[in-house]
């Protein structure tokens, strides 16, 4: 399947736009206080990821990437956010996310991380000749931002969201740098994320039964004195 030249130019620009959106959503998550909005943001990020994958599939003509895009759309943009949504209602978690560090500082730290990620990715980007060139830095920055979100939040659910956002960033890095991992690896990673999700879901219920709260600071008592 051949793609005409001007579609390729348009496509590359569009991909850059999507990457920027991914990063932007990452920042939005970092700044967001409400849990419900956080889950919506996660769904949007999954959607952007699916779109990006589909675009790369269109540009390079790899049929496997279409499956990957479909899978991303189904799992990350629809299913997991829906389940999280239900979980939130069933657990009756309300109110704001309490951050360990205040939001402006977190955002500043995020900017530092993005710069770090770009400086790391610079030699890799210089080597790749694919159309996705320059996207590695953005993906890496998205991963690091999600990690930062996991660290700075107190509620267990926001950590799950951070974990899933990290997974999104990783997938984006894979599609952009290597034009998609082999399907089997992709399925494996997706399964890993799903299992982690299930375990954490069970963990939520256990935690609520024990502490009547989702605040992680209750876990501090479980340690060796």
């Amino acid at each position: 399947m051949l793609v005409s030249a001007h579609i390729a130019v348009w496509g590359t620009s569009l991909l850059k736009l999507l990457a920027a959106m991914l990063l932007l959503i990452g920042f939005a998550m970092l700044a967001q206080r409400r849990l419900l909005t956080l889950i919506h943001l996660l769904a949007w990020q999954g959607f952007v990821l699916a779109l990006g994958t589909a675009l790369v599939a269109l540009l390079t003509g790899q049929t496997e990437l279409w499956y990957s895009a479909a899978l991303s759309l189904g799992l990350k943009a629809l299913l997991i956010p829906a389940v999280l949504h239900r979980l939130l209602r069933r657990l009756k978690v309300r109110g704001d996310v309490e951050a360990v560090i205040n939001i402006p500082t977190t955002l500043l730290l995020g900017i530092v991380l993005v710069i770090f990620a770009f400086s790391l990715a610079a030699p890799i980007s210089a080597l790749t000749g694919t159309i996705t060139r320059g996207m590695v830095g953005i993906a890496l920055a998205a991963v690091l931002l999600s990690f930062l979100m996991m660290i700075t939040r107190r509620k267990a659910i926001s950590q799950v969201v951070g974990f899933l956002a990290m997974d999104n960033g990783l997938f984006f890095a894979a599609t952009s740098a290597t034009l998609g991992m082999p399907m089997i690896v992709e399925l494996g990673v997706a399964l890993d994320a799903l299992i982690g999700f299930v375990i954490l879901g069970i963990f939520f219920f256990q935690m609520r039964e024990t502490f009547d709260s989702m605040d992680l600071s209750h876990l501090e008592r479980i340690r060796e004195e």
């Binding site: 930062l148 950590q159 992680l216 501090e220 340690r223 060796e224």
Partner: peptide, 16 residues
């Protein structure tokens, strides 16, 4: 033993 804080965020910070 001091490394063991009991807070998940701190453990995450270590790996980060």
């Amino acid at each position: 033993v001091r490394l063991q804080q009991g807070r998940i965020t701190v453990y995450l910070l270590y790996s980060f």
